[in-house]
Design a protein around this nucleic acid. Structure first.
Lengths: 110, 110
DNA sequence: CATGTTTATCGTAATATTGCAATATTAAAA
DNA sequence: TTTTAATATTGCAATATTACGATAAACATG
């Protein structure tokens, strides 16, 4: 065991879980916050911002890219990483749906 | 290695990461969705709703309880699990801050 | 009190994640 | 072309997560 039984759950549940998992690490949240804060698209010195080795940062960037939260464009020698607004819009819609359901709930039962 | 270097990140980043991690599993999302859908507070038959063994479900419930997303009240023989609205309000505030920053951003640079 | 029901915990196997040193790759610069 | 800079990939060790059988604990009911 040790592997999530994805096949027993809905596509939506698995998709949202993957998105959450991508954000479930302080380093990756720090990357996102940095990219949000920086108005111009910073090309590469994310490594200097983080207290982690370059290969580790590269791996975290890859995970964020895999779920589409960020994208990276080759800019000559270096790479321009930035937020992928489309995915974030989708993510916002999905989480808002959760919060909307929450508001429909009656008072706490416990 | 294998352990997250929490000490190098902010309290907020670590806290949000833990919340995300709690939601980063389809079974736990399924539990949350079930508790949201069910208006009356269902006492216990969450196990029957999920395609997982009882100890596994119990473990997932514990994780959700640890971060405060749900709470469980002993109701005689069984236990009444339900959404903890306070934590969800906090969660909504934090994620809304992220989305707000997103909207302030100029057009995609890449 | 004995029995069944419900939930939690323990122990353990399988797998995933995190982090980094070493190395490869790519493209600019000298 | 050699060197330098930026990023990715590989390989591996340490740790965490997921899942479940076996068992315990708590309580209701006969």
């Amino acid at each position: 065991m040790g592997a999530t039984k994805t096949e027993h759950f809905t596509i939506d549940q698995n998709e949202l879980a993957l998105l959450m998992k991508a954000l479930a690490h302080p380093a990756r949240l720090a990357i996102i916050e940095f990219l949000l804060k920086t108005d111009s698209c910073i090309c590469g010195d994310i490594v200097n911002e983080l207290p982690l080795a370059q290969p580790t940062v590269s791996q975290h960037l890859k995970e964020l890219k895999n779920v589409g939260l960020i994208k990276g464009n080759i800019e000559g020698n270096s790479i321009c990483y930035c937020i992928d607004v489309e995915t974030w819009k989708h993510y916002e819609t999905v989480t808002n749906k959760l919060f909307a359901q929450l508001k429909k709930k009656k008072t706490n039962c416990c």
